[in-house]
Design a protein around this nucleic acid. Structure first.
Lengths: 239, 239
DNA sequence: CGTCGCGCATCGTTCAACGATCCGGCATGG
DNA sequence: CCATGCCGGATCGTTGAACGATGCGCGACG
């Protein structure tokens, strides 16, 4: 580390750096446990319907029961887990009705977010949309279909990011996490996610050109199509 | 209740009814505690910035500390409370940035929900919009300005209810709860909420006539206006 | 006057325990 | 053979107490 000639100056610089980069107080054991569990679920290592016994997970993650329960509560609020009284918590198994409801919500939020994207932050937000498209292409290039699925999620998150509202972003994250659970119930991701690579590209270029109305309409069609395909695939399998 | 001639048929009907109407297991002490606290906050008895000490609330509500903490966690997730590490939980004090963000979200969601209201449930959903308008009128008639504020919230909730998505409804409830906190920071509710009675009526009649595009545009204007007024009132007061 | 340290109050986390509830298996009776 | 009822084990919901960690206020000291 370089020692500044003027210590006062150094202190001021350090203060500025610390104020900019928010203090990483990601502590709170419960939060870390929740993060770990959430990751296990979205990665597909914990499949829908699996029961998460308190006792077994307590000593597996080396935390107390109360701490674990606090993490569970958070994930239940995120709809990732469901709690059945005196029976335990389970990984959510989204039903057809849930998929329908999620897509009704997405059909409201996503096109509107694209249509009324705040002009100010467009530079960065638009590039995030493009980045997601490229990420999907790259993953498809190396036949990493799980990666394509991830990129797809990033794409839709970037779309609502155009609205520039933190709260909308968080709501979208919840919806996307729920979609991941649904995908895990379906077969391989390839058949489903691959066709959307080009549609993502089309939407991205429309957004880049500022043709937001067109882009919004395309997204709406996109979502309607995806919903019917998912529901077909879901009712084709076991209920 | 009518006794069916065929008892087997009756049993089948009863089974169907029970499967539809989910069993009301609203127990769980933590949930009840959370409900009680939430009510205290939205009613304005617990004002923004107030600190909620664990010890004092434990014996006040006759529950254990762990149970109370579980309720706290839920309310923190709802943004009604904020938790500062090793300092305690406080009633959220929304800043100008929060109001801005909330309204960016509302300007996306509410007009879109009105514009793309699902036609199926319209009969009931539309009447809920009208009911909220009448509720506001009645409250204004007896000079109950807090009641007018409530009716206003019901009105906007009914608007997103037109979309027919449970998840969207819940998101809207969170946003409205946050708005309540903001209102409590502002002065009396009368000056702010009274002018919107007629605009609510206008929107309701547009919706009833099926002129959804017009209604959505009106709602968008409505929200933009409300935001500027709130932010003005908020920055006029103390930060 | 400003800074440093100390004690107190509170929070975060853990542990042990008791009653309540659910699940599975067994026995009894038709 | 199948249905009904009962019982034990396992798990959850909730409580109470405890220990270390952290933040805050106050006094002492330079």
């Amino acid at each position: 580390m370089t020692v500044a000639a003027d210590p006062d100056q150094a202190a001021r610089a350090a203060l500025e750096a610390l104020s900019t980069a928010r203090v990483a107080q990601t502590s709170s054991t419960a939060e870390r446990v929740a993060d770990a569990l959430r990751e296990q679920v979205v990665e597909g290592r914990l499949l829908p319907g699996v029961r998460l016994g308190e006792q077994s997970f307590c000593d597996a993650m080396r935390v107390s029961r109360n701490t674990l329960r606090e993490a569970f509560s958070q994930l239940v609020a995120e709809r990732i887990l469901v709690r059945e009284a005196h029976r335990g918590v389970f990984v959510t198994t989204p039903g057809v009705a849930d998929v329908h409801d999620v897509y009704r919500s997405r059909r409201i939020v996503e096109p509107a977010a694209v249509r009324h994207g705040e002009n100010a932050r467009d530079e960065a937000a638009v590039s995030r949309v493009r980045d997601a498209v490229e990420e999907g292409r790259a993953a498809a290039g190396r036949e990493d279909w799980a990666g394509v699925a991830d990129a797809n999620q990033h794409f839709h998150r970037a779309l609502v990011g155009l609205a520039g509202s933190t709260r909308l972003d968080q709501q979208m994250d919840l919806l996307l996490a729920e979609m991941r659970l649904t995908f895990h119930r379906m077969g391989t991701h390839r058949d489903f996610h691959e066709p959307y690579l080009e549609r993502n590209d089309a939407v991205a270029t429309l957004v880049e050109r500022g043709e937001l109305e067109e882009a919004a309409r395309e997204v709406a069609d996109y979502l309607a199509d995806a919903e019917t395909r998912i529901i077909a695939s879901l009712s084709g399998a076991r209920t």
